[in-house]
Design a protein around this nucleic acid. Structure first.
Length: 284
DNA sequence: GCCCAGGATCACC
DNA sequence: GGTGATCCTGGG
């Protein structure tokens, strides 16, 4: 991976970068298409436009300092995805990796990820996007970039201070008290960052102390924001893949064990590619 | 108008 | 320890 800077943008030379695969696979909900092969949105408190170009990816605006401090890690650009499972001998996974080529796992802000996946419970991507958009538009700090107004994700204390009615009006439904409760715990000292130093099992157990956080949501937060690449979020789609492609019929508790044994320490990355493949091939 | 998809929680065994 | 009813709402 090598990077050139021009006209306020970073040009990242990489063969593995497909904006649609990155932003349409249910890991992030606040980036939207803007033209061919491009997405724009707010992450880590800044606006970013991401475009696929012949050399790889173009990030704008992005100085060398922005890249080194924020976006390199956000897009997990130092990892060679093509090499991850190249000698695993699993034809299903290999096919999935090929199909989803260019999908990268984002390193998102832990609190935004936590709230996003509490909202995701028993919910669909389209509605999740709408709920988060309204929450940010109403309660996130606004800033302007090139004449347009954008919103940062609200801080824990802001969401903790809202009424359940106010959160309900954003469309969160019965999840409103979960959002408020989890935000309050985060505001009052529950440290998501501190989970980085724990083992997977302890970190997951700790996360599940938060209201609205069960096994699936905990795995999503660990995988999408805290660098636990062995976390294996077991949603209905991945369960379908495991059943149909691997003949796995175990219960929820056995899924993680199966995934870890089958896919290794990067099981979570395998999960994303299998999920993407299954979703894309189930659209009617 | 009806029914479905989608995880966490709670009551219950 | 596991099972099943319930929660909300956009979209078919």
């Amino acid at each position: 991976m090598d990077v050139a800077y021009e006209n306020g943008a970073a040009l990242v030379r990489t063969g593995c970068f497909e904006p649609r695969h990155i932003f349409e696979n249910g890991q992030a909900f606040r980036f939207f298409p803007c033209g061919a092969n491009a997405y724009e949105g707010v992450a880590h408190g800044r606006y970013l436009r991401v475009e696929k170009v012949p050399e790889g990816a173009r990030l704008y605006p992005c100085t060398q300092q922005d890249f080194e401090r924020v976006w390199k890690r956000y897009f997990d650009l130092e990892r060679d995805y093509a090499a991850l499972f190249s000698d695993c001998g699993d034809s299903v996974l290999k096919q999935g990796m090929q199909y989803g080529c260019g999908l990268r796992l984002l390193n998102q802000e832990p609190f935004e990820t936590l709230i996003s996946f509490i909202v995701s419970a028993n919910n669909h991507v389209k509605r999740i996007r709408g709920i988060l958009r309204r929450i940010c538009a109403l309660y996130g700090e606004p800033f302007s970039f090139e004449g347009k107004t954008w919103h940062r994700f609200p801080a824990p204390a802001i969401l903790a201070g809202l009424s359940e009615e106010a959160l309900g009006e954003c469309g969160s439904g019965y999840r409103a008290p979960y959002i408020k409760g989890a935000a309050r715990m985060a505001a009052e000292g529950f440290s998501l960052e501190a989970l980085r130093g724990m083992g997977y099992a302890d970190a997951k157990k700790e996360l599940q102390r938060l209201p609205g956080v069960g096994p699936k949501v905990a795995d999503c937060v660990l995988l999408f924001s805290l660098g636990f690449y062995d976390a294996f979020p077991a949603d209905v789609w991945v369960r379908r893949v495991l059943r149909e492609q691997y003949g796995f019929t175990g219960n929820d508790r056995q899924i993680y064990e199966f995934a870890r044994k089958r896919f290794g320490p990067y099981a979570g990355i395998a999960q994303q590619y299998l999920f993407f493949w299954k979703r894309e091939n189930s659209k009617s």
